[in-house]
Computed example of a mutant assay.
Amino acid sequence: MKKITIKATMGMALLLLTACSSLVPTSKEISNNDIPKNETLKEVDFDSLEKGVQWVSDTVQPHYYTSLIVPKVKLERNITYSKQIPEAVLEELSTIVTKQLRSNISSDIKVVDKVGPHVAQINLRISRATANPEDLKLTEVIPIGAVIGAVKMALGTRDQSVRIIIEAQIVDSISNKPLAERVSVIEAAGVLENDKSSLRYEQIKKDVDNFVKEVRTFIQSAAYEAQQRPVKAS
């Protein structure tokens, strides 16, 4: 059997450190292609905990929309969720985000149930949910710590971090034309003790509450960005 040297383990540790998780979604995690082909998502951070990528149509007229429909958050059924993240937890996340968003956003814009003129709709979906080994800490780069961290990972006893990707898209309620889109990450670092643990909603409640605030800020920022653009001559 080939021995694993300290040098090799150090290399493994450094590799893992360079691949640290981020609150910004990766290109692989972004699966929605509904925005126009000639447009791209750009990184827009509301604060250190509210990072994401978004796009706002250059033709949207924010003053045109006076009401908003907030359907229930959807789960993308054709992807494989981590077995450590029960679908029941994602369903609870969906229900709570929907309820909180409808309540919180009503102070900014009228929330309605039916499509019509001057009505926009915000569609949210959970497109990805994974559990991954927690990143090696800097202290584990020292030889002994690196060995311990590598062994824990090999045995499956290392803490697991949960990463959930949620896409939010604002559309015209009648034409379904995209007006703005944001892709965000809910990440709960080290909430699972090992690769056999199952996620409980209570472990991500705080992160979900922050996400609801982020979606509200996204709606406000999309309107603000549209208002700042020069009016195009007709």
Results as ranks from 00 to 15, higher is better:
G11Q: 03
S22L: 12
P133T: 13
Q220I: 10
V215S: 09
T98G: 00
I109D: 05
L124R: 09
S82F: 02
I165G: 02
E140A: 13
E87H: 05
E202V: 06
S57H: 13
Q227P: 00
V183Q: 01
E39F: 06
S107L: 15
I4D: 07
V162F: 03
L17N: 14
R200I: 02
I96K: 15
Y224C: 08
A154E: 15
Q169V: 15
N38E: 06
R229Q: 04
R102I: 10
S48W: 10
T130N: 14
V24D: 09
G52W: 09
N176E: 05
K205M: 11
V70W: 00
I144M: 02
N32Y: 14
K2D: 14
A13G: 12
R128M: 05
A233F: 13
R163F: 06
I166N: 06
G11N: 11
E202R: 04
V119A: 01
H63Y: 14
E202F: 02
A154L: 09
I219R: 11
T66S: 14
T26C: 08
P230T: 09
Q169G: 08
S197C: 04
V171K: 12
S161M: 07
K99M: 10
S22D: 07
A8P: 02
S173M: 06
Y81V: 14
T40G: 13
S173H: 04
I174G: 00
A129E: 00
L179C: 06
I219H: 15
K177C: 11
M153E: 05
E92S: 07
M12N: 05
P117I: 03
P178T: 01
M1T: 11
Y224P: 04
Q121C: 10
L17P: 05
G149F: 04
N123Y: 03
I109Q: 04
E167N: 13
R229W: 01
N104H: 07
V231M: 10
T9E: 01
E214K: 04
